[in-house]
Computed example of a mutant assay.
Amino acid sequence: MTSLQTRPLHPTALVTGGNRGLGLAIARGLMARGVRVTIGAREPALGAEAARALGCDHVHLDLTEAETWFQAFRAKGGWDILVNNAGLYRQGSLLEPGSDFTESMEVMVAAPLDLIRMNLGHWRRTGWGRIVNISSGLGSFDQGLGGPGAYSIAKASLNALTKVLPRDLPPGVKVNACDPGWLRTRMGGEGAPLTAEQGADTPVWLALLPDDGPTGGFFRGRQAADW
């Protein structure tokens, strides 16, 4: 294991759910700053199409199918930056049969943790890494956990994971969560006030934090936000 804790000149990044919306905007923003990006997509054809348009790499990554994670890591070996962006947003009562609770927790909490675990070997070798967990104001106790279905529960759990992880991560690896805001994407709808590019600003900033930057925090508009 190296003791190097300086950012590589051209770090690598995996952006889950990177073929559209916020994930695509994050991938584009990172590439503009010299990062070598791989986008993960649930649908391989859509991932390949988006990657061709961006000029980056792609992997098949379905966060409900662990075999796709293993294949991605076998093929690429790991990344310097991990952006856990993929998510789902469904209506309905948690008490109804077939609620989204299990899938939401898998996609937005369990799978991000597993990706972090799988990438540990890479971070231990390089001594530098950044994890960006895309959360939401709807996952904030301060804002009332107002999202539908299991969305708020999953995002609040992702926030808790973010706060706890610094104690277990290797030196040189930082983890933070952020609320990108209400965005004009397929999830956010046409009435949202912010573009995907505006929402990508804070995640891109967190992905490239300097060595003295924060870790274990929750951010909105590059400012610390209440949990």
Rank of each mutant, 00 (worst) to 15 (best):
T2V: 04
T2G: 00
Q5G: 13
H10F: 14
H10R: 15
P11R: 14
N19V: 03
G21Q: 13
L22K: 13
G23N: 10
A25W: 02
M31T: 14
G34H: 06
V35K: 02
R36H: 15
G40A: 06
L46P: 01
E49R: 08
E49I: 06
A50H: 03
A53K: 08
L54V: 09
C56G: 00
D57E: 15
H58V: 01
T64L: 06
A66G: 09
E67D: 15
F70L: 13
K76M: 12
G77M: 11
V83N: 00
N84W: 04
L88A: 06
Q91D: 13
E96N: 09
P97T: 14
S99Y: 08
D100R: 09
M108Q: 15
A110W: 00
M118W: 06
W128A: 04
R130V: 03
N133W: 03
N133H: 07
S136T: 05
S140E: 13
Q143T: 04
G144M: 11
L145S: 01
G149L: 08
Y151F: 09
Y151Q: 06
S152Q: 10
I153G: 11
L158C: 06
L161V: 13
T162Y: 09
P166R: 07
D168Q: 15
L169F: 14
V173W: 00
V173R: 00
P180K: 01
L183A: 01
M187Y: 08
E190V: 12
E190M: 07
P193S: 01
L194N: 14
L194D: 11
T202K: 01
V204W: 07
L206S: 03
P210H: 09
D211Q: 12
G213N: 09
R220Y: 13
A225I: 05
D226N: 07
W227K: 06
